[in-house]
């Protein structure tokens, strides 16, 4: 069960859920500006271009004009050499590029915590090393939690990640309000 205590400004995850169940429980209480999710089963919108997908939360919540949103998306995509894909539809991207765009969409409102749910389901095997490099780059920008099957954890040995076993997830506490 996930509990949200407004007075203490915390969300506490108290469960032994399977990853998908944990994700669906977390989604119910997610406050988008502070906790974001990058997941294999939360897709990009097929009818929007890449830059529209990334800046949708900004344009919707913060009334950012389309031109300003384009500039913001351009600078974000430039970092990952994806500026050419700015006006393309998501189906034109490969799996790893999809993951990057999903991350940028999750990151656009500067959350404090980003969850990556089962990244191996979003990647082909060859992409796992670039993904680790990608995580290394994004790690200083916000708190990152990767929810992953145990057999993939060896990939993370280079990273200074704190491993939280399934049965002690009840100790995971996220700050959700600034």
């Amino acid at each position: 069960m996930i509990n949200y205590a407004r007075d203490k400004n915390i969300v506490s995850v108290t469960a032994n859920y399977m990853a998908d169940t944990m994700q669906s429980e977390l989604l119910k209480k997610t406050i988008w500006s502070n906790v974001s999710i990058v997941s294999y089963n939360i897709p990009l919108l097929a009818t929007l271009s890449i830059f529209e997908n990334i800046t949708l939360p900004l344009q919707y919540f913060e009334n950012i004009k389309r031109k300003d949103a384009e500039t913001i998306a351009y600078h974000l995509l430039k970092k990952y050499n994806l500026t050419k894909a700015m006006y393309l539809r998501p189906k034109r991207l490969n799996e790893f590029e999809h993951l990057i765009v999903k991350y940028l969409r999750a990151y656009i409102r500067k959350p404090e915590h980003i969850f990556f749910f089962l990244p191996h389901r979003m990647l082909i095997t060859d992409d796992y090393s670039p993904f680790i490099e990608f995580i290394k780059e994004v790690k200083p920008e916000c708190h990152i939690t990767v929810v992953e099957n145990y057999r993939y954890l060896i990939e993370y040995k280079e990273l200074e990640f704190k491993e939280i076993p399934y049965n002690s997830w009840q100790t995971l506490v996220l700050k959700t309000l600034r």
Binding site: W32, I42, A46, L56
Partner: peptide, 25 residues
Amino acid sequence: VDVGMMKSNREIKALEVMNIDPYIY
């Protein structure tokens, strides 16, 4: 077809995850 496909592809769920109300958007 458009809204049906958006629902079955979980795109409406994706909007809800971003706290964007599908009724409005």
